[in-house]
Amino acid sequence: MTTSDTTITAQAASQSDGINLYRPSRSKRVRRLIRTQPLGAFFLLVIVALIVIAVFAPFFATHSPTTTGATNLESPSMDHWFGTDHLGRDIYSRVVHGSRTSLQVGIIATAIGVIGGAFIGLVSGYFGGWLDMFFQRIVDTLMAFPLLILALIMIAVVGPSMRNVMIVVGIGIMPGVSRIIRGIVLSEKENQYIEAAKTIGCSAPRILWRHLLPNLIAPIVVIASAVMPGAILVEAGLSFLGLGTPPPTPSWGGDLSGNAQRFFRHAPWMAIFPGLAISIVVLAFNLVGDAIRDIVDPRLRNR
């Protein structure tokens, strides 16, 4: 038996070679998506809406997220929809602006992790030998640690900032991704088309880039959608511990941490809304991720 090499995603991803030559019109595909994946389709809209809110945050916010003008700890009202915090900042506006931090870190960290992990997995799986040995021992080591602890260690070294959080979480995602990709590459490279490519004299980079990678796009998409919620949660967790996005930048995790905690008993709205926002974003990414997995591998549908 191997260790935790294979995860469900790996099994799901590796079995995805359904080819469909018939391609229905776009509106037909949209309607079918809504019919077969109603939850996924709905939460995809939620994600789109969230991205729009994040991009146009100043437009959606009613106040500046950092101005401390209003009365402290004001309960939700027509003027301050989610109330104000202990510094008199408008919580609704902070939540709106916080979506920038959360989504930006989540998306970029996932991109770094998936691209880096896929690269390591491809190289490690395709070339094998000492290179594989070397990478896999490091991957073993990193995979022994939970993502949050890994990120904490690295943040301790590079210092907390939004850019560092993206990089650190991205690096933390890499080992798991590379393990899955490596597994798929190991079986994929035995195919005849790879042998054919080798025979006609394709260079290794060309085989990796032009032949192997296109066949890995489906699993990579599944993996990306599966790691995204975790990346968002870890950013929130780091900010909560005071090691993520530094204040005064609005961050959902950060707004729940440190000094703010002492005021929650008097102003519970301070605690409720940022956390609710995290939960909705992560829920949306989780459900869309499930839907993507179902579409890519219909055998797992309804599971």
């Binding site: 919620p229 949660l233 929130a236 967790g237 909560f240 995790g253 729940l256 941490s257 905690q261 929650f264 605690a271 940022p274 956390g275 609710l276 995290i278 939960s279 909705i280 992560v282 829920l283 989780n286």
Partner: peptide, 9 residues
């Protein structure tokens, strides 16, 4: 989907 630190709080 719910972060543990939010639930805990």
């Amino acid at each position: 989907s719910m972060p543990s630190f939010w639930l805990g709080t």
